[in-house]
């Protein structure tokens, strides 16, 4: 479980402009710098926010992947995908 790392990536997306830029240009290489499990890495690269939420990523952090348009996400796509998650599954809430 590296939920902490997923949350850290979401935090950096909002607060580190250079990181956000690198994540947009070369997401695979950028994610290599984090201690993620293979399923977590795959979920991030696929913009699978439902899977990330179900693993316990904090929704207030996770939503930044959509609002900051990284990992193939847009605010609209984020809103659509997260609706299929089960409320309360997040570990951090």
């Amino acid at each position: 479980m590296s939920v902490y790392e997923i949350n850290r990536i979401c935090y950096l997306v909002a607060h580190d402009d250079e990181f956000r830029g690198r994540l947009r240009t070369d997401p695979r290489r950028q994610l290599d710098e984090f201690a993620l499990t293979e399923p977590e890495r795959a979920a991030l690269l696929a913009g699978d926010v439902r899977a990330l939420y179900d693993r316990g990523a904090h929704p207030v952090l996770l939503v930044r992947l959509g609002t900051h348009r990284v990992l193939g996400l847009t605010p609209e796509l984020y809103a659509e995908r997260i609706r299929t998650a089960r409320p309360g599954n997040g570990e951090q809430k």
Partner: peptide, 17 residues
Amino acid sequence: LEVGGPRMDRGKLYGIP
């Protein structure tokens, strides 16, 4: 208020559960 989670209103980034 729901922000970022599955109980947001359809097509919106917030909801009031």
